[in-house]
Design a protein around this nucleic acid. Sequence first.
DNA 1: GCCTCCGCACTTACAGCGTACACCACATGA
DNA 2: TCATGTGGTGTACGCTGTAAGTGCGGAGGC
Lengths: 222, 222
Amino acid sequence: MMQTDSASPPEPRKPLSRERVLRAALRLADDGGLSALSMRKVGAELGVEAMSLYNHIRNKEDIVAGITDLVAGEIDLPTPDFDWKGQMRTRSQSAHRVLMRHPWAAAQFQSGRTPGPQMMTYLDATLGCLMAVGFTPAQADHARNTIDNHIYGFTLQSLTRPTRVREISRQAKRALKDIPKASYPNLYRRTEDLANAADPEAEDFDFGLTLILDGLDALTRR
Amino acid sequence: MMQTDSASPPEPRKPLSRERVLRAALRLADDGGLSALSMRKVGAELGVEAMSLYNHIRNKEDIVAGITDLVAGEIDLPTPDFDWKGQMRTRSQSAHRVLMRHPWAAAQFQSGRTPGPQMMTYLDATLGCLMAVGFTPAQADHARNTIDNHIYGFTLQSLTRPTRVREISRQAKRALKDIPKASYPNLYRRTEDLANAADPEAEDFDFGLTLILDGLDALTRR
DNA sequence: GCCTCCGCACTTACAGCGTACACCACATGA
DNA sequence: TCATGTGGTGTACGCTGTAAGTGCGGAGGC
């Protein structure tokens, strides 16, 4: 009789937990996108059947909400400060970086389902920073909204675009063939521009952001 | 022998076509969202089996791209005009209205897949309007991007929010119970504000839009 | 008129999805 | 020693997109 029992040691298998389920799900979503996230795959990742997960989470929606909140927790929080524009700028850049690490997350943030605790902390800190320098609650909310729309929109855009500078130019050149110059002259001209630019300004996240912050600044002075 | 043939007349059933498939799909998506859009349901809507659709469209992705372009065609195009801010404002409001009619579409617009002809026409007109008043191609693109991010973001926000003013206040009051005042003081204060506001300014789409347009205006004058 | 071809709808089938439900091993407390 | 409950498993249902093969009906060539 083989000692298969001792040959393959019991491997007591850490007990499942909401935490462990969410971690595994986050890993799957990060490489492969939300469409690669299935109950069966999360189970497999943990060496467990799909149905076992339901002892720790309500359903798939609960998982997505959970990992979205995990991501929210990675963003650097702004603090009340005289230099509120600087605070908003760094928090925006932090959020952008985080969302680029988790490409599936930006769409979730934007859809704005019922936020988890980390997301609420993040919202609260942002509102707090703005209200501390004189924004009314309503103004602060509008400001935050405008800034966030920019962050999410820009990030989603960046995720589609090819990353490397060289690639942008190459892709622009290829796109030119598909754009009938006669039908879309302006689009053509812009793409032409992109194709020829030596250094297509890669990161002008700041373009829109500065626009918005300066606009808000003008409002507070009014 | 019953004359079932003449009793239920042949009903020659208009032939399928890409156009008819997309129309049916658009109807389904509009009431029920993208998740209510399945090949079998589109087929049923047309009195046809699911697989028959594949004679006219490549796959489901093709359908979604198709109806997204249909929606893009509904937006009023800007025209070159000295009052470019007015043009941008009306086109933004038009886009917002259209996207509210097709709640599933905003996310598609934002994801920015390979655009269809109507979408390209729309992009081209916008770029053209901006370049006509002196924006460089790159500037025009950045401007359009910033404006569009605001449109899409705000629209997605509006779609989550309850429509009627009364409802907003009611929901804010309910939300207050779920917000621990101690943990999220600023969020609490803003929600409190919303709950008590007699007329929570429903439509301040213009808040952020004006911010952005004025910012762009300042750039052109520089 | 007949034959042949082909466009287009139909049928069947498969792999994958979320999850309801029944079952059972095992640890715990009485 | 037995009841109880916690947390895993197995099976099953209805749904999804779509690959592959079938067959009907009308159009074009002789």
